[in-house]
């Protein structure tokens, strides 16, 4: 699996606790990244479409949702992708930490 972009990683992370609709995902991403990553609506939906096509997220039908509002949730393969990316980041930071400590 190739490394995820920061936006994609934050979108997937925002869906870890449960299903969210588009605007809630935007807010979660801003909150998780301390306002460093602020997605535009266009960027968000380009990413969501890609994630849907890859089967990492799926649409959930909510009968009471206002018109046009849809909810997304992680699929098992999406959850695996988050775990794998997290493991990759942890191993990278561990490698960097060992290298820096060795240099001192």
């Amino acid at each position: 699996m190739s490394p995820l972009t920061e936006s994609t990683f934050f979108i997937l992370l925002s869906l870890v606790p449960g299903a969210q609709h588009g605007y809630a995902i935007m807010q979660q991403v801003a909150q998780l990244s301390d306002e460093r990553v602020t997605l535009s609506t266009g960027t968000l939906y380009t990413a969501l479409k890609r994630l849907l096509d890859d089967g990492w997220i799926e649409q959930v039908e909510e009968p009471d949702a206002p018109r046009g509002r849809k909810t997304y949730r992680l699929t098992p393969s999406g959850r695996t992708a988050v775990h794998e990316e997290t493991a990759r980041l942890v191993s990278l930071s561990e490698l960097a930490r060992r290298r820096l400590e060795g240099a001192q």
Binding site: M26, T41, R69, K70
Partner: peptide
């Protein structure tokens, strides 16, 4: 996605 994007944009 059009209707959904417009809804999200309006909220934002």
């Amino acid at each position: 996605f059009g209707a959904e994007m417009l809804d999200v944009f309006t909220q934002a």
